[in-house]
Design a protein around this nucleic acid. Structure first.
Lengths: 233, 233
DNA sequence: TTTTTAATTGTGAAAACAACACTTAAAAAA
DNA sequence: TTTTTTAAGTGTTGTTTTCACAATTAAAAA
């Protein structure tokens, strides 16, 4: 078959912004770039899109190659195409963000790979426009989390309400009244109370909860405002 | 300077999904594609990204070349990268959506170019994955419009509250009580009441309003839910 | 047994929202 | 000139949601 002759062909990359939560602060996963330019400097998980793979496939492949992570929450964020963003050669990058439970993958990541977790407030200087990608990802997560229950992706299967509250306070950089928070969260019908407690955080212990997956999937898209019955969208 | 040798280079395109409102229904701007494959079939406004231009620049250029439109609301939507999406040669496409006031550009568009407006409910079959792009754009607009005042981009500078209500009813495919609607809209502080009326739609005539641009920019990002004081974000 | 620490739980006041119908301006018709 | 017609404009009330606020309890540690 014919081709589109005379058109410019470009390098296309994928960069993954991986967020994790350790129970106290939000963290960002970074690696030391393995090739020139900027070899050895801190970078997001990135790589080139291959000839025969889709963007989602590329993002998943790159994430797995560089960190071992598989089957995590991954969502396309934005495509960055400034002609000068990579000084070596023009490269357009499709960014994705991932949300993972740090504990679940901690040993795996640090043992087999050279990725490291950084507190979001203490990230090193990043290559190219990666800092901007991170900022955009943070904004997107806040935006989405304000209306959809995505932050559960950052928690273990079993979690306590105080843990959940800490996470929300962390993401939104605010404090929330715990009576109101638990009322609100429980009112969603998304949580199932378990019989056992987490004794790590306090003497009394806090009850574990897990997601009601049925309700989770059903209500994931619901939100509200400006429009009378927006839940029917 | 060196290049990234051995990496695959791809065609990168931009496709613009242009929405307009004629006072009654939402419309979509389409053109007949001017080259193979699918020459002569209905398509979004698309073109290849050039070597020296950013994605935003490409989107604006292509929109101008194909429709004459300039300075309109344009926002990046999503990047589509299925390897098979263009049967001729692999092309990754960055989609953008635009919101414009049909009246303002009507003569210009239909006179100089071959673009045509279609009612959203009566769009012809589109090439490649353009139908999916349109669906995604509609979702995004609903989503965003439910929380941010973007729909004003579809109206003339001077508009009436009944016109605004029709637009919202149209986008959300619902009916809204006009007493509640006007209360809500006026409560935002976004509108300035003008002295003259639009006599076209009724005998009595409806007062014109215009945006308070100060408040419009200031409040554009505000929204609410799940979090106690989300307006402080 | 006492102390310490964090988890758990309820109420009332204020604000936001949803449901609902009549009056009025002004052109058109009689 | 009067009457009719049409869509614009406007308020109230009951309900729901949101916010502010503090005492009690379980359980380990002292």
């Amino acid at each position: 078959m014919l081709k589109y002759s005379k058109q410019t062909r470009l390098l296309l990359a994928v960069d993954c912004i991986v967020f994790g939560f350790d129970g106290e602060v939000l963290k960002l996963l970074l690696i030391k770039r393995g090739f020139q330019p900027e070899k050895g400097n801190w970078s997001l998980m990135g790589g080139f899109v291959q000839a025969d793979e889709s963007l989602d496939q590329a993002a998943n492949r790159i994430l797995k190659q560089l960190t071992g992570l598989e089957g995590v929450y991954l969502e396309q964020l934005n495509t960055f195409g400034d002609p000068q963003r990579d000084p070596m050669e023009r490269t357009v990058s499709v960014s994705y963000f991932a949300l993972i439970d740090i504990q679940k993958y901690e040993t795996q990541i640090s043992a087999d790979y050279h990725a490291e977790w950084f507190q979001l407030k203490r990230t090193p200087k990043l290559i190219f426009d990666h800092q901007e990608m991170v900022e955009q990802a943070r904004k997107r997560i806040r935006y989405k989390a304000a209306m959809h229950p995505i932050l559960f992706e950052l928690l273990p299967t079993k979690f306590t309400i105080p843990q959940l509250q800490t996470l929300y306070e962390c993401v939104f950089n605010t404090t929330i009244d715990k009576r109101n928070f638990s009322k609100r969260v429980l009112a969603t019908g998304l949580l199932i109370k378990l019989a056992d407690k987490d004794k790590a955080g306090s003497k009394r212990g806090a009850y574990y909860y897990q997601l009601n997956m049925q309700n989770y999937y059903a209500k994931f898209q619901a939100f509200m405002n400006f429009i009378p019955n927006p839940d029917s969208l």
